[in-house]
């Protein structure tokens, strides 16, 4: 035993700490699942899903695939219980991907759930074409898409499209508060500060909303490429947290930005995908606002 022994053991100490950190993170994720279970029992579904999402990210980071897959499966079950079949399907598919790659035992169970849901969805689509309750039916927006974009890009009316986008973005849950930042002298600086804060506390929903507003402001300044970048970031965030409304709004924004950049096919694809989600959400206000936007883009 010598006085330099502690230096020789630095690697061991780091390894020990890393192992401890790993264990803490795993324990944190396990705790989140327990909290989510209690919240779910208390009918606090959104909060429960939030905890499950966070636990999934930790398990993924730690490479604990079995846990990650079982939580994704569980999330699918949660959404299935809420009759949100599309979202449930999304989680089951993610789970199935991991099960396939890692040969996990729950693969068969998840596969059966996917099959059952796909059958239900196919049946309801057939019925839906006859008894759609949506205020905007698919035909009406498909017609708009079929009419095509304006060929004369110089006639793009930024002001008109901008006001339609304002109507849409104001439907975002976070807009009532964060939208007011636009009244400040230097709105971008305020919003950037808020984004930094949202990142520091892990407020994904707040961050996504703020980024979307950044994009809207950039678009109004006719900085279309920059705005597209913001809209894409917001879309990624909303998808990450499974916020369908946020995703639909972001897709409309992305599609519009592509259109303004002259990339009409790409734009059309995003707009169509957005309309599919909006139709699924049965949100009349959003449908009307989205239709108004489409009409201002297409002719």
């Amino acid at each position: 035993m010598g006085i330099f022994d502690r230096y020789q053991s630095t690697d061991d100490t780091i390894k020990k700490y890393l192992k401890q950190l790993w264990e803490y993170q795993e324990a944190e994720a396990d705790l989140m699942v327990e909290i989510a279970t209690l919240l779910y029992e208390d009918d606090a579904i959104d909060d429960a899903v939030g905890f499950l999402e966070r636990s999934v990210r930790i398990y993924e980071e730690l490479g604990l695939y079995e846990q990650e897959a079982s939580i994704l499966d569980l999330m699918g079950d949660v959404y299935l219980n809420m009759d949100e079949n599309n979202t449930a399907l999304k989680y089951y598919r993610k789970c199935h991907q991991i099960c396939t790659a890692k040969d996990l035992p729950i693969i068969e169970d998840v596969f059966n759930k996917i099959q059952e849901l796909e059958e239900v969805e196919q049946t309801s689509t057939k019925i839906g074409t006859e008894t759609s309750t949506s205020s905007v039916d698919e035909d009406s927006y498909s017609e708009i898409f079929d009419e095509g974009f304006s060929d004369e890009m110089e006639k793009v009316d930024y002001e008109n499209i901008g006001s339609k986008l304002d109507d849409i973005i104001s439907l975002l849950d976070e807009y009532a508060i964060y939208g007011s930042y636009q009244k400040f002298d230097n709105p971008l600086a305020h919003i950037k500060e808020a984004i930094e804060m949202s990142r520091s506390i892990g407020d994904d929903k707040g961050e996504a909303g703020l980024i979307l507003i950044m994009g809207d402001i950039s678009l109004k300044k006719e900085e279309t490429e920059k705005s597209l970048d913001y809209f894409q970031q917001a879309l990624k965030k909303f998808r990450k947290i499974g916020d369908d409304k946020g995703e639909a709004i972001s897709r409309l924004m992305v599609g519009t930005a592509y259109f303004l950049l002259g990339e009409t096919e790409e734009g059309s694809s995003y707009l169509r995908e957005s309309m599919e989600i909006i139709k699924f959400l049965h949100d009349d206000k959003m449908e009307k606002a989205a239709m108004a936007l489409l009409k201002s883009i297409y002719r």
Partner: peptide, 24 residues
């Protein structure tokens, strides 16, 4: 329904549902 008061140097309205805004 929101605040009847306008935000000012001494009064800022926010919502308990927006943690980022509270912090800002």
């Amino acid at each position: 329904s929101g605040s009847e008061m306008e935000d000012s140097d001494l009064y800022q309205s926010t919502s308990v549902k927006n943690p980022t805004d509270i912090l800002v």
